[in-house]
């Protein structure tokens, strides 16, 4: 089963390098309120700026909850992130979906920022994979899939 990727884009006034910086290094400041997975509201959302770096949120108590990781770090044009939040809104290192963001200069100045979230069918494969791994112990894991699909 294959699922069409999600694609969205916006145009911003900033040049690509600046847009890239605002997007990746100041995510805490524009990410939708409440749109995080930790138990408390996020104090920071951090992308460690290198391949293999973590993508995580930190709450006011300093508790960190990982979301994924950096797969490619290519300022000012592109960043490729691994989204590893599973269906129960928890970090799952065994799940990897890709979020690619491209920053393309516009003729009139500014930048077109295009985001693609792909490999969405892996959420389902993830659920099935867990069942196989757990091999008969009726786990709580599938609840993940349920919670996610239930929204």
């Amino acid at each position: 089963m294959s699922i069409a990727p999600i694609v969205h884009s916006v145009e911003v006034k900033a040049a690509p390098a600046r847009a890239f910086e605002l997007f990746t290094m100041q995510m805490s400041r524009w990410w939708p309120q409440g749109g995080t997975i930790g138990g408390k509201p996020h104090a920071a959302i951090i992308i460690e700026p290198q391949p293999g770096g973590r993508w995580f949120e930190r709450d006011e108590d300093g508790k960190e909850t990982q979301w994924g990781k950096v797969l490619a770090w290519e300022p000012p044009g592109r960043v490729l992130l691994g989204w590893q939040i599973d269906c129960k809104w928890g970090f799952d290192p065994g799940l990897l979906t890709e979020v690619e963001i491209n920053f393309a200069p516009l003729a009139a100045g500014g930048t077109r920022v295009t985001l693609v979230h792909r490999d969405l069918e892996r959420f389902g494969a993830d659920a099935a994979g867990h069942v196989q791994k757990l091999n008969g112990g009726w786990p709580t894991r599938l609840r993940n899939f349920a919670d996610f699909t239930g929204t």
Binding site: I6, V12, L22, V113, F123
Partner: peptide
């Protein structure tokens, strides 16, 4: 069921990018 999840993510990213545009500008 996975389609429903995709629909959620679709809304999420639309809203996040709108937030980003406003912030960036």
């Amino acid at each position: 069921g996975i389609g429903a999840m995709r629909a959620w993510l679709d809304r999420h990213w639309r809203s996040a990018l709108d937030g980003f545009r406003e912030f960036a500008d």
